[in-house]
Design a protein around this nucleic acid. Structure first.
Lengths: 223, 223
DNA sequence: TAGATTGTTAATCGATTAACAATC
DNA sequence: TAGATTGTTAATCGATTAACAATC
């Protein structure tokens, strides 16, 4: 007996909140594997990952069912499942625009290479930087001038914007023009993009603000 | 007639999602103010901020009511309200541990100073870095050796961890010991902290993973 | 007044959690 | 079998959205 599934409804079934946690699980599993742990329960894995066991099992359930009741999960196998789902099998090429301190930090960030992203291009307008080689997670990469952006972007799937705020929208436009559909931005301004382009935005100042606002409590007002 | 409000229930009434967006509004308002715009409607402000007008008004409603029906918001006034609420009046001191590329980038990040955070301490174990002066948003700051961490942390409200993964938990423990209750971490591992400590965690690799996983669609399975 | 826009309500949506039947 | 742990359901929680009465 076969199951008919309406093709239109077979969209992205895994919630964004879950996708965001999968790399954490992956990282923890890699650690366990390296320490020779063969099997792990949802309770253990969840504790180390900083989530509840119910949330962990729910997250995994979106990908399928990989555990054995009464036993737990095979560390190796679960690692390969998550890695596979996250697309780590295939290298994803990334271009970083802006090679100041932040760009440098991103280029050399070991987590990118670990997760199958490779820095395929570095671009800056500063003539002092252009021509330099920068150490990335998987090899040295040349900093190229700004007019090479389009050519580089056409070979990449993700663009990272690490320029000053003022240049961010211009860079973004050019990335989009070159066909990039996924952008990670560190500018503290909102980027305007077409509907089919996904932007993730990391505002470091906002992160601090959230932390700083926590202890604040609104005073009760009487009328 | 006066209103009695149960004191126990007067906790943090502003949702976290809202707090996270307030700095964006603040930034947009500052831009409008600098361009001489005196009044703005929720629809305009929302469009530039990249949210819907309903969400914007709802967000502002948590702080109070500051607009004029039929008119909109006074840009200057609304800016001062949000800035005030976010605690920008009082400088918040931050200590950054790890002054590699990422630490450098954070130290010089203009958005921190703009939002009233000041980098009051920089700490690293590398003897080559210790003693150097690093440009921050508001002046040069000396890189101090690791054994000064506790002393510096006692003068700060927020600790930022920009060290390699392996050192992150140790640094975190020491920050907590020194009395820090708010931590921003860039380590790709989960930090274990007491219940009263708030950790925000930026995993750059996870951000890329979310982007990269978007176009992927789960294949329909038949049984 | 007529038109515009806020502040707030109620409905909707999505994510988290607790609980437990299924099953190793 | 008895104990353990998964995968899933249903309830809960929190955030978003649409709509509109209040009011400038």
């Amino acid at each position: 007996m076969s199951l008919h599934i309406a093709p239109e409804r077979t969209r992205s079934v895994v919630p964004g909140a879950t996708v965001q946690r999968l790399p954490v699980y992956l990282h923890v599993l890699a650690g366990l594997r390296d320490r020779g742990v063969a099997t792990v329960s949802s309770a253990e894995l969840a504790a180390v990952s900083g989530v509840t066991s119910a949330k962990l099992r729910k997250d995994l359930s979106y990908l399928g069912s990989f555990g054995r009741r009464g036993v737990g999960y095979d560390v190796d196998y679960l690692h390969s499942v998550i890695a596979g789902w996250l697309g780590i099998q295939q290298e994803i090429a990334v271009v970083i625009v802006g090679v100041g301190n932040l760009g440098h930090a991103l280029a050399s960030y070991p987590g990118f290479a670990q997760r199958g992203f490779s820095v395929a291009g570095l671009v800056d307008i500063d003539p002092d930087l252009v021509g330099q080689r920068v150490q990335t997670g998987d090899g040295m990469v040349l900093v190229e001038p700004y007019d090479r952006l389009t050519a580089l972007a056409q070979r990449c799937q993700i663009g990272i914007i690490a320029t000053p705020d003022a240049s961010a929208q211009g860079v973004c436009d050019q990335l989009v023009q070159a066909g990039i559909r996924e952008i990670l931005s560190f500018a503290s301004r909102v980027l305007v993009v077409p509907d089919d382009v996904q932007v993730r935005h990391i505002d470091l100042g906002a992160e601090l603000s959230v932390l700083a606002s926590r202890p604040r409590r609104t005073t009760a007002v009487s009328a």
